[in-house]
Design a protein around this nucleic acid. Sequence first.
DNA 1: CCCTGCTATCTAAACGATTAGATACGATGA
DNA 2: TCATCGTATCTAATCGTTTAGATAGCAGGG
Lengths: 334, 334
Amino acid sequence: MTKRADKPITLADVARRAGTSTAVVSYVINDGPRPVAAATRERVLAAAAELGYRPNRIARALRSRTTGVVGLVLADASNPYFAALARHVEQALERRERLTLIGNAGYSADRQRDLVDRFLAAQVDGLVIVSAEGGDDVTDLAQAAGVPAVYVHHGPSDGRARVVGADNHDAVREAVAHLRGHGHRHIAFLGGPHDAGPVADRRTAWRAAVADDPWAALLRCDYSRAAAHSLTRRLAAGDALPRALITATDEQAIGVLSGAWASGVAVPGRLAVISLDGTPESAHTAPALTVTRQPLEAMAEQAVELLSGRDPGAPAAHAPLVIRRSCGCDGDQD
Amino acid sequence: MTKRADKPITLADVARRAGTSTAVVSYVINDGPRPVAAATRERVLAAAAELGYRPNRIARALRSRTTGVVGLVLADASNPYFAALARHVEQALERRERLTLIGNAGYSADRQRDLVDRFLAAQVDGLVIVSAEGGDDVTDLAQAAGVPAVYVHHGPSDGRARVVGADNHDAVREAVAHLRGHGHRHIAFLGGPHDAGPVADRRTAWRAAVADDPWAALLRCDYSRAAAHSLTRRLAAGDALPRALITATDEQAIGVLSGAWASGVAVPGRLAVISLDGTPESAHTAPALTVTRQPLEAMAEQAVELLSGRDPGAPAAHAPLVIRRSCGCDGDQD
DNA sequence: CCCTGCTATCTAAACGATTAGATACGATGA
DNA sequence: TCATCGTATCTAATCGTTTAGATAGCAGGG
């Protein structure tokens, strides 16, 4: 009961108490555009402290037309990859003292536009779009409102929008080389149903890396564990399972693992797997997944940097190969 | 280039165009507190549509002292359990047309208070705290600001705060009974390092359910996959592994699974496992986890309902047993 | 024909901060 | 002593809504 709830403290209260005008208080609070005498500053600070003054960001936002809030639109927060990305974006924003408005578009372009609309009405200072293939282009909306927008992981390919991604080519090349090192001749790839955006890049890179192998198999399924699980069971039943597989996403890799387990297929003995995401989940599957870890933190940092108008130097961060067990190595599993 | 970015449309613009005052426009926009003649309403609506008017929520918030934004404070978004809970809370809010400000406290009470402070400065209409054991009590802050706060999963135990949880006793009883049904005599429990909040409830319930078994072992480790993984490996090396185990959380269960795999321990053959969370991840581990699924959606719904002042009837939702394979059943895999 | 009461609308004061322009006060130089 | 300048502060307009109070117009009862 230290403070009554009914009357929030305002600038005017502090000014009255300090015996000054609201202007000086404002100048003190934000090292304002004009200087304040040291003695006065002290009085103001003391008054503010005594009253427990907390600036009202809404009022500040109305006047100064900047809210310190950024909208984060997610295609699907259930997907650990997107969830991890979201976390890093939120942290990058936090570091810059900005608040994060979050929303789930659930792979629907309509809901995505809707969300962006609502974020813009809330006067966000910027938009980070973590979208998947289905994600529509919302650059027009943002532009109309004069709000900077950045896509992460996947975005419209016409040059108009700023898109932050990772260097997938190198990663895939490394993965293929590693499996070759284990003696595998034919290295299959499990991609998505349509292959647009980063996953298409990954597929292309794989195709290039196995160009010398006409039998390299391209598999496809949804990006869900369930889909990869049943695909694996089906292939195992028909004895059509490859011996070495690169999956486009961790979700698929995890589905492959559980499908293999259910079919009695030994990993990595009968089937070696490398996944191209490297979310935290991948470290504690059975067996632990060898992955190329997407540099999520660097991507988030780059995205947020782009929002502030700064153009970060490095165009695409490298995704390092993290060797664990699913590839056949006797990994770092303690 | 349909709309210039430099001049957002305001109420006054619409009023001018419709030949009315700003008051009527406001009345029309929100079926205002006063009626408007049908003809006028038409004119206003038309003008608004033509100009592409979008109300400025900041200005609205300043005047009406309600932002339509709720702050969601997370102990740790990396934990899939919390992440799933967060998703459901966000969806429950979305359904009520409210925006979600999200923030990660990272198990630190200081950062939690800090976040709450910043959310309150942003004039949130309510706070949802998804906190773990470490989480401090922030009821005082919220109360001082006159903002309703609800804790989900875990909260201060003095009656002052509203806490939404699930019925853990029933769930644990069911899990124990199920393992007994598989012929297990001794059922161990893997809890957290300190056991406060819901995990303590779960432990207590387990103790009650195995009261007739003086040898039932209580294990402890951090709530991380890594900790459970190495604990399992250690126990396996010392041949001290129980034959049936209930884990307090999915994270631990997944760590146990990967530890067992690494130690060559067969699950469920040598070690049967049931977990008490039931996050989506648990469906696609190898083997698939049998769990008591926490009613996250119901909890989120309850929490948001509480924020609006309504007191939802049901005090604690039931966590149903989802039978898969880690318990020894020939589960519903694929 | 005037007064009453109702409806539809307008005027203007909030909300709490920021900030440009006006002002007051000493100190300085001629 | 007076004009000049600089510093520290105050006054008040402004951001875009909401909404209570004032007002205008019209119908109906006496």
